[in-house]
Design a binder for these strands. Structure first.
Lengths: 252, 252
DNA sequence: CGAGTCGTTGAAACACTTCAAGGCTTGTGG
DNA sequence: CCACAAGCCTTGAAGTGTTTCAACGACTCG
């Protein structure tokens, strides 16, 4: 029922002795300052999964028996209305958790955006381990706290920001989300489509496209390809994201 | 940094031997199935606080040294943009927690809507207790999970629902939020103003007022007073909330 | 090369906001 | 007890940011 995102600085990567025979994954990430003993036990109950772009992982209404940790790639988590309207509530990257909630069914769907690998923990085994190792539970609570804070920021965006502010906020925040692909020289990697960005920001694809074009025309960003751009004026982008209006320019 | 709301069914009320000498509060609520020993220890470190309508509890940017549990009344939790635009990210009622996050400053503000009483726990004391009593940490994680699920629902509302669907959703969900004031015969108590409802739903006060009027005209609700109404046709209200469009009526 | 998917751009439509006026309620002071 | 000011809410009319509808361009794949 819930999904917990990592903060890069809280993540430590632990390399396995050898690649998993099933899926080839070589590492998995856990959050917080876990002791080596905790890591070893966590490792012991992990099962590796590989997904191709577009593959579903969980579907709204599914029984929630497992807990997942993304080890590479990116995913979308979303909710649907009966008529098909979609709200993407988050993108998941390396280190993010999925499905920690206490309920017995998922209240959202999760699909792979690109080829993605994960670790799966059976919830029963995980809970048993968490009882023995309180640091695990504590680390998860920390993640939940950060995730809630991010959710509040997103509510502010969806409820009160203009289209331009939403797109700017998205470009400012995204680079910090994926620890596996740190931003270099202001280059932002966008694995998702315009449609996914739109459904994440509560806009249409046309509006996203138009606002990106305006940011480009204003010289604030340069579009390198459909899935990457470079931020040329980070301070202006940040100002727009925070709702600090610019007098002229960008109006048209 | 985070705020955790209770689910009524998870809350147990525990009556104190006598009223608190400072504020007069007689009970506080904790979540989950805590053992009597845990309750007693929690009780021992609790400090009682009373607020009047409008009083602030925490301000965005404040150092986060305490953790609060609402024992009566209602509060608003919100974030602001520099130009004053406000997004209320949640309303808090009896049993709800405030400030569980790990960070050292609050990322939101909290104010009392009506006269409200709370229990305060010093974070350091609480964490020490949680280390000894894992059930406490576990109960908080459950709360965080439910809160995250609610946040995802709100993102769906803010990003993809129409004004009418938002107001309908609000009226459907609100009665279940306050365990201290259960809904009887479809009567919904609204302690907050239209302005607060608007800032919660990402609308203006005029739009909220108009949509309430339309629901009244359609015979779906009856306005009893400014701060209470009765739902006459719950199934129609629920259908609207879920985005199931009605053919005719309600159009104007 | 044609089909399909995804993205961009323009024009028209519309849902919601903004601006404006008035009503209702509450509290205060003469 | 009434007058009056101050909030809060409702309602109407005009304005606008975003959506919807439509066409076209770019890229990928068989």
């Amino acid at each position: 029922m819930i999904e917990l995102r990592s903060l890069p600085e809280l993540c430590i990567q632990r390399r396995r002795e050898s690649a998993c025979s099933t899926c080839g994954a070589r590492e998995f990430s856990v959050c917080g300052s876990l002791a080596p003993g905790d890591l070893a036990e966590l490792d012991a109950i992990a099962e590796h999964i590989g997904l191709q772009a577009g593959d579903p992982l969980v579907h709204e209404g599914d029984a929630a028996t497992s807990l997942f940790n993304v080890t590479s790639g990116s995913m979308r988590i979303y909710k649907l209305l009966p008529d098909g309207r979609r709200q993407i509530t988050g993108f998941l990257f390396t280190g993010d958790f999925i499905g920690l909630a206490s309920g017995d069914t998922h209240a959202f769907s999760v699909e792979a955006i690109e080829d993605t690998s994960l670790c799966r923990f059976r919830k029963s085994e995980y809970r048993a381990l968490a009882r023995e190792r309180p640091a695990l539970e504590s680390a998860l609570l920390n993640r939940a706290a950060h995730e809630l804070s991010a959710a509040q920021n997103q509510m502010l965006l969806l409820g009160r920001k203009t289209a331009r502010e939403r797109v700017a906020t998205f470009l400012v925040d995204l680079p910090d989300r994926d620890p596996a692909r740190p931003s270099v020289g202001g280059v932002v990697h966008l694995p998702m489509t315009r449609s996914e960005i739109a459904d994440y920001l509560g806009l249409t694809i046309e509006t996203v496209s138009r606002e990106l074009t305006k940011l480009k025309t204003a010289g604030i960003v340069t579009l390198l390809s459909l899935h990457s751009l470079r931020v040329e004026q980070p301070e202006r982008l940040r100002a727009i994201a925070e709702g600090v209006q610019e007098r002229s320019a960008l109006s048209a």
